[in-house]
Nucleic acid binder design. Structure first.
Lengths: 207, 207
DNA sequence: GTCTATAGAGCGATAGAC
DNA sequence: GTCTATCGCTCTATAGAC
């Protein structure tokens, strides 16, 4: 998702305030992430988002057309936000380093974690606007992790003979659960718990 | 919370239909579990519960006084529902058998799993009526599991030198995450994933 | 203990002035 | 692009008849 013509900062506004409209929309999406995270889709009102964004619910309707359309923009933004981190992390550094980077980063953004957790559970309903999105995300994540695990296995970093598809799902589920528990207690060291799990997969318990 | 005078079963109704009122309340709580599970606390209306229970929302107000009071009854019932299983399972059969029983049983009750997942996430908000309840439940669970793990360690069922407090939390988080993923795909074998995790803890990978 | 009626508030969405 | 006003709907909760 390219960044759209941005005529702020140093370039002069090339016509009128189209760029300002874009900036406004981004501010609103940012506020919407927080409020949707805290209250879920059905629990969130346009008025409450508008209040946090410093505008009116009519303005939201003007910019996005409907509550659901705004929510879809939130989902897109959320996906875009971690895809760079994800790609960079998984690239070639191994699953431990990747997990480390990802968990460290997540620890820094409560809104994102809460958004994930809230939507994951709410979107269990097949009629929820994020249901298909979420199903796809689960499937993609397991697939990505599984590929990494296979690579690690052939590199000898993890033990042979493990049921890798099961391990991949375990890792995904572990992260989901840890994030929820972390929302109750931010002192929980998510990175540690993930890394310790990966340690269990290593070849020689030669301690 | 003692069980209030119950004049059902063998004692004759000592006056009129007080016992019927109690049965009615139980039916309503049963319906409420399902609806709260599907829509969360804030997403659920008294009218929708009343509809499923075959009565009116005014009747709910009459029996429970408020939406929040009804919700508290739901939480109590949910806790009572698995405490028997929990005690029986954890008693002395070892953590693998306990996990097996618990995951098998959970697989049979979608409403309970969805209720857990929904409330766990929604109650992250400190103002949520189930926030303290949930925090307590997390803490109790980790403590219970940790005790079991210590027992297993001294019995030699699991490897020595593992960071048991971390393992206990991992197990709790794993189950939370698995239950959420299961809500998207009931073919997911939760029991298998938990048992495979416990296998990782065993002493000799002499396979 | 269940009914109808209603209060009082919040919701998503629309219309039209500026 | 933002404003006020409003529609039609749903919500929790209460009042009072039967």
């Amino acid at each position: 998702m390219p960044d759209a013509p941005r005529s702020t900062s140093n370039a002069k506004p090339d016509r009128a305030s189209y760029a300002n409209g874009e900036r406004r929309r981004q501010q609103i999406v940012e506020a919407a992430i927080e409020v949707f995270a805290e209250n879920g889709y059905s629990g969130t009102s346009l008025r409450s988002i508008a209040e946090r964004a410093g505008t009116s619910h009519v303005s939201l309707m003007h910019h996005f057309g409907s509550k659901e359309a705004l929510f879809q923009r939130v989902l897109e933004r959320r996906l875009a936000l971690d895809q760079d981190v994800r790609l960079a992390a998984f690239a070639e550094s191994g699953i431990e380093a990747a997990a480390s980077v990802m968990m460290k980063r997540n620890t820094r953004s409560r809104a994102l974690i809460q958004l994930d957790a809230t939507i994951q559970v709410e979107a269990v309903d097949p009629n929820h606007p994020a249901h298909d999105y979420m199903k796809q995300l689960f499937a993609d994540t397991v697939k990505e992790v599984l590929e990494q695990l296979h690579a690690e296995e052939s590199r000898g970093v993890i033990r042979e003979g493990l049921p890798l598809p099961v391990v991949a799902r375990q890792l995904g589920a572990l992260i989901i659960g840890l994030q929820i528990e972390w929302l109750y207690d931010e002192d929980l060291d998510m990175e540690l718990h993930v890394l310790e799990f990966l340690r269990l997969l290593r070849p020689a318990p030669s301690a």
